[in-house]
Design a protein around this nucleic acid. Structure first.
Lengths: 220, 220
DNA sequence: ACCTGAACACCGTTCAAGT
DNA sequence: ACCTGAACACCGTTCAAGT
């Protein structure tokens, strides 16, 4: 990662992504990013106006990677499920960065292409614009929230697998030690709550929950 | 806010909440908190192990305030809607702190009393434990995500109303200026997207979307 | 145009010390 | 037991300067 060519924005975002994935979002630092590229911190300010701008670019990179499924003649809800699944697929490998999606919303240009598609599907279903906007925004943010809670996710992620497992064990122990009379269901679910199995089934359920909520709103 | 009595944990959390609400989450600082109580930064470390611990306490304070509705003999889904509404009611005045709910999950003791109730309702409906745990966690986090996107919400909130309005105007201008051929639906919804009306109806829809997703999963 | 260097006003946190 | 004070290793960002 030594300074080879000229300082490049895309490359900077890429290493920011790597740092976020491995050390958590808090480790993404102007100075750290500069150092990783063998350059002075101030050199970054030629490509970003702010640190905020760096994080915006990081979130935008996520949206860029979404492979938006081609439009076909299936029902709107089936296509919506595919669209949301494509989004989740991109978010899952980057739980720390998913927090940015939740807190920053859909400001970048790549995010808007995704939003455009979601709004289009809702419009084809007959939703009024105001309702569609609220529903689409909520859906995308909720999916972000789903991914953020991935074990070892979040802004201050313990990415070290050993440390991660220790944290999960500690959590399960705390939950199991709760009063079974006051928290019967929490204690019963201690195992699942401590290391909630954020597997394919978990996310499929999340997507289907959201799509079905849309179906419900559609049917009044 | 001068130093009167001895340094008090509850009072510290209260001023942390005020700061978060008015200046955003980033303004919540160990040094700032100490200064506000007329005390040295290190004095806080008698009440909190970490800055993380301060933020955990801040999130916990939110869960404490939730007035959990008393159990009655209505259907599980109606009671669930009330429970989630009670949670949203507490989150709404504190959009910046809601981000902590999303990223930190349900670790505190007050959060677990809320989770216990949600799990109980799902169990009474006949959901298997693993599924119930995933659904309940996702529901609460999603509601947090809904509130975080409140205009002027999020960790770096421009709480100054004048600045907030300026940001909204700027966003609407950007969205309206997009290519209407590439982003027809986004442009059409520019007004709503820029200052999405996070009113009662918006949150009611959010709650109902989630509850109905549960109903769907229940019916397979 | 692109990058450096020194400086400033902040952070969280340590360690040792005071009362 | 509770708090202070000085210090350390970090931040983001400014301004002026170099090539």
């Amino acid at each position: 990662m030594a300074a080879k060519a000229r300082l490049n924005k895309e490359a900077l975002v890429s290493t920011a992504m790597e740092i976020a994935d491995t050390q958590g979002l808090d480790a993404v630092t102007v100075r750290r990013l500069a150092q990783e590229h063998g350059v002075t911190p101030m050199a970054l300010y030629r490509h970003f106006t702010d640190k905020e701008d760096v994080l915006d670019a990081l979130a935008a990179r996520l949206f860029e990677q979404v492979v938006i499924p081609v439009q076909d003649d299936r029902a709107w809800d089936e296509q919506m499920a595919d669209l949301l699944s494509a989004f989740v697929k991109v978010l899952r490998p980057h739980p720390a960065v998913a927090a940015l999606v939740v807190t920053r919303g859909l400001d970048s240009e790549p995010a808007l292409t995704l939003a455009e598609r979601a709004l289009g599907l809702l419009a084809s279903a007959g939703f009024p614009v105001e309702e569609a906007a609220g529903i689409a925004g909520a859906a995308l943010c909720s999916l972000g929230a789903l991914v953020v809670t991935e074990p070892g996710g979040g802004p201050a992620a313990p990415a070290d697998p050993e440390e991660r497992d220790a944290a999960i064990r500690a959590r399960r122990a705390t939950l199991s030690a709760l009063s079974p009379t006051r928290y019967p269901h929490v204690v019963a679910a201690a195992g699942v709550l401590a290391d909630c199995p954020n597997d394919d089934a978990y996310y499929e359920r999340g997507v289907h929950t959201i799509v079905n909520g849309m179906r419900y709103a559609h049917a009044h």
